[in-house]
């Protein structure tokens, strides 16, 4: 048998990209379970629709690009995109919204830029932003209320019905999200009055606080597994907190910090979306700047923008800057007095 001639190293750590993606999926499970517990089975259905669409689109593109389909499906990246997208969508949004969002995410946001590893924008967030802008009504009227506030528990078949066919009677099971409620009523009522509304429950907001904690738990698991580093999540949350404390200290007019952190998609965004390595900054300092940028943008959009939640736009805006940030935050290499900044001048 001929001996191979291969460049070193000749050994590698076990595991592959698919393994990394799987770990992220596992880390999402607690959040998914709690979402279903509090807001009904809508998200499970959305995950199913998004996953089927995404995998089908991925396979289609791979066939068109004449690539081995299974080899690429095995990296789980399309599935992860689908799940993240589905978790960001409202649980009862019509099926076609989900299909459009996830097809757009895979085909346009991912593969038209060259596929895995080449996409400058987070595909899930591109898909989400597309449908948020295109179908505002479907997107804002599809959040179910917490189960304990509904008269009857939302069943699986009911959810299927709302998602796939008739939307009549959907008002009975949907509600505005806490962030939405607070934002629109802060001008008229004091903080105490707003918090008396049933949706906020006894602590922060029914369901949301637990779901956020579950996401954070999953994120910490990934940190422990060294799938990503602490830089981005911590800087997102810190920047958001600082902004909220400095500019929104008056709870009567501004959304309070607790709501910023523990409702909406903050934790999902900080731990699972902003940390998407392909579209994030990669240098240690760059990650901190990138995360802080997201945190600040979340606060700015939530406070001054038209949308109650802002993860998608904040992440997408910082995606623009990631490559640039990287160039100016190179670490100091061993044996050099100072770090280099930017690309070589002039050059060829």
């Amino acid at each position: 048998m001929a001996l191979l001639n291969i460049s070193s190293p000749h050994t590698s750590r076990p595991g592959d990209t698919g393994g990394v993606m799987r770990q992220v999926l596992y880390a999402l499970l607690p959040g998914i379970v709690l979402l279903t517990w509090f807001f009904g089975p809508g998200h499970l259905i959305q995950i199913g629709i998004a996953a089927i669409t995404a995998l089908a689109c991925e396979a289609l593109v791979m066939v068109l690009r004449k690539r081995p389909v299974l080899f690429y499906l095995k990296d789980y990246s399309a599935l992860l995109t689908a799940v993240l997208l589905a978790l960001a969508l409202p649980p009862l949004c019509p099926w076609w919204v989900t299909v459009i969002a996830s097809a757009f995410a895979i085909i346009f946001a991912k593969h038209l830029y060259g596929g895995m590893g080449y996409n400058p924008f987070n595909p899930a967030m591109v898909g989400f932003a597309l449908v948020l802008i295109s179908f505002p009504v479907a997107m804002t009227t599809s959040w179910t209320g917490p189960a304990e506030l509904l008269n009857a528990k939302l069943t699986f078949s009911q959810s299927l019905h709302f998602i796939f066919s008739a939307r009549d009677g959907i008002d009975a099971v949907t509600m505005a999200t806490p962030l939405d409620v607070y934002k629109h009523q802060a001008a008229m009522q004091t903080s105490d009055e707003i918090f008396k509304q049933p949706i906020f429950g006894s602590t922060i907001a029914i369901g949301w606080e637990w779901i956020s904690l579950a996401y954070a738990l999953g994120g910490i698991y990934l940190l422990w597994r060294r799938i990503f580093t602490w830089h981005i999540p911590l800087s997102v949350l810190t920047a958001l907190s600082i902004c909220s404390v400095i500019f929104g200290w008056d709870a009567d007019t501004h959304v309070p910090l607790s709501l910023h952190l523990f409702t909406g998609a903050t934790m999902l965004g900080a731990f699972f979306i902003a940390t998407d390595p392909v579209t994030a900054s990669t240098t240690p300092l760059g990650k901190i700047i990138y995360g802080a940028g997201i945190g600040i943008l979340i606060y700015v959009i939530r406070t001054y923008g038209a949308y109650p939640d802002a993860i998608a736009f904040a992440v997408l805006l910082m995606n623009f800057a990631a490559a640039f940030i990287d160039q100016y935050t190179q670490p100091r290499t061993y044996g050099h007095n100072k770090a280099k900044r930017g690309l070589p001048k002039g050059g060829k």
């Binding site: 990209t17 895995m116 590893g117 060294r226 799938i227 392909v278 990669t282 240098t283 190179q330 670490p331």
Partner: peptide
């Protein structure tokens, strides 16, 4: 014992190389 590495996949810029580099380079760049 030391299997030949499987076919390379696309770089996902995960940054694990940056953390492992003893010369503090940006291997992925």
């Amino acid at each position: 014992e030391l299997p030949v590495a499987p076919a390379a996949q696309a770089c996902i810029r995960c940054g694990m190389c940056t953390e492992a580099c003893p010369a503090q380079l940006l291997p992925q760049q």
